[in-house]
Design a binder for these strands. Structure first.
Length: 407
DNA sequence: AGTCCACAGGAAGGGCAGGCGA
DNA sequence: TCGCCTGCCCTTCCTGTGGACT
């Protein structure tokens, strides 16, 4: 047996110096020791939760704010501090975290309670038991522990939109029957108007305390990024102009710190791949382009077959139009449906009706992939004028994916 | 002013898949 | 295991629309 062949790419990669010092600190999941610009919210949370240390009942909390405003990180941090404080005083507080957006984990009432029971150390089948049996089992497990239980239900609006708010009412009613302990619910949502849609009974039981997380402004984002830059890259690697650009771009997107961190991390990866020693504004621009590209590509890949077909027709028609320098540069819904039918026949796919295709066009418009407007051509009818919103590398990449699929 | 065109888009319901619950 | 329920995707049917044409 001869010696194994060495993979040059791997060995070169290992020798290559890295720009990163601790890449984990540049991810949204990382919990820093001190969370900046959220002092007020943390204090409000702590004040509400503190009575649990003395065994008093604590109010349910409703936390809301847009994406990337630190809601989850702050809740997890405060609960960890609460548990630490309880442990230091020979007490115990149990906390459970559930992300209700996780498919097949907590997206139905059954799955939610099954997951809660599993997190408490119990076991239930994936399906088959009546929901009231699960309630009873959950109730018994909680009551037998003699420890106060705090449950964080992240992205709670997703679950409520799916199954309604009855389960929240039931969950809050369990407290009345519990003899030895108490349950507190912290509901987290990105949707500020979601609370208004709740049943009055649920609103009064869940929304006893409300905490709003306002979006970060560009200065605060810059400050947060500067700190993470130091731990993530070390000193002098990322130029201040690059940090500023990440903060400004994220501030434009409703002060989303998660987005700012993604930009910074991807910019670092690009700089590293290019063999540069510093992360500059140019790398941030490239990172933004890359993130947008990946987002759109993922979005398009996740669309149903017929939606992809419609988009394919729109792209090919846009290109034909540009090549032929047509006098009438408009793409109309009637033309799209006609070409869509032609491709369906050629590829042996059963076409959808015009009504359904009209909805698919509207959906693509909503996703921002295309832009449409309803126009009237007088005697020649009413129609929708369609234009492609994708440009540059995003459009090229999308075209390639769809051409590979439909020819 | 009335007609007409080529759709937009709402409403209702069918078919199917997957989940729930006895 | 199987009937029931629910949600989703889709079709069918229908009314509405607005500017050009008569």
């Amino acid at each position: 047996m001869g010696s194994r062949q060495e993979n040059l790419i791997f060995s070169q990669y290992l020798k290559q110096p890295t720009l990163f010092q601790d890449k984990d600190t540049l991810t949204a999941n990382f919990i820093p020791s001190k969370i900046k610009h959220r002092e007020q919210e943390i204090q409000q949370l702590s004040v509400t939760l503190a009575p649990a240390l003395k065994g008093y009942t604590i109010n349910n909390i409703f936390v809301y704010g847009t994406c990337g405003t630190g809601k989850t990180v702050c809740c997890k941090t405060v609960l960890q501090q609460l548990q630490d404080a309880a442990a230091a005083n020979d007490k115990e507080i149990q906390t459970l975290y559930i992300n209700c957006k996780m498919k097949r984990v907590a997206d139905t009432e059954y799955r939610l309670f099954a997951q809660l029971i599993r997190l408490l150390g119990g076991w239930v089948p994936d399906t088959g038991l009546p929901t009231d049996v699960l309630y009873r089992r959950f109730f018994e497990m909680v009551d037998s522990t003699n420890k106060p239980l705090i449950i964080i239900l992240d992205e709670i609006d997703t679950l409520i939109n799916k199954i309604g708010d009855e389960f929240l009412y039931n969950l809050s009613r369990i407290n009345i029957e519990l003899k030895n302990t108490r349950i507190t619910i912290i509901g987290i949502t990105n949707n500020a108007s979601f609370r208004d849609s709740l049943d009055q009974r649920v609103k009064s039981s869940l929304g006893e305390e409300e905490i709003l997380f306002k979006p970060y402004n560009a200065t605060q984002l810059h400050d947060i990024l500067a700190e993470r830059t130091l731990s993530g890259f070390g000193e002098g690697v990322v130029l201040d102009e690059a940090v500023g650009k990440c903060a400004a771009l994220a501030a434009q997107e409703h002060g989303d710190a998660r987005r700012a961190l993604d930009l910074l991390r991807v910019a670092g990866e690009i700089a590293e791949r290019m063999g540069d020693v510093n992360v500059t504004e140019t790398h941030v621009d490239l990172a933004e382009e890359k993130i947008n590209l990946e987002r759109i590509v993922e979005l398009i890949k996740s669309q149903p077959l017929h939606s992809q077909l419609v988009l394919h027709v729109i792209i090919t028609q846009t290109e034909k139009q540009q090549d032929a320098q047509w006098t009438d540069r408009r793409i109309l819904s009637g033309d799209i449906f006609h070409h869509y039918n032609t491709i369906c026949t050629a590829t042996n796919i059963k076409p959808l009706t015009q009504r359904r295709v009209s909805d698919l066009v509207a959906e693509l418009d909503m996703l921002g992939v295309i832009a449409t407007r309803v126009i009237s051509k007088g005697r020649y009818g009413r129609t929708r004028e369609i234009s492609l919103s994708l440009s540059g590398p995003v459009r090229e990449k999308t075209r390639k994916i769809l051409v590979t699929k439909f020819g």
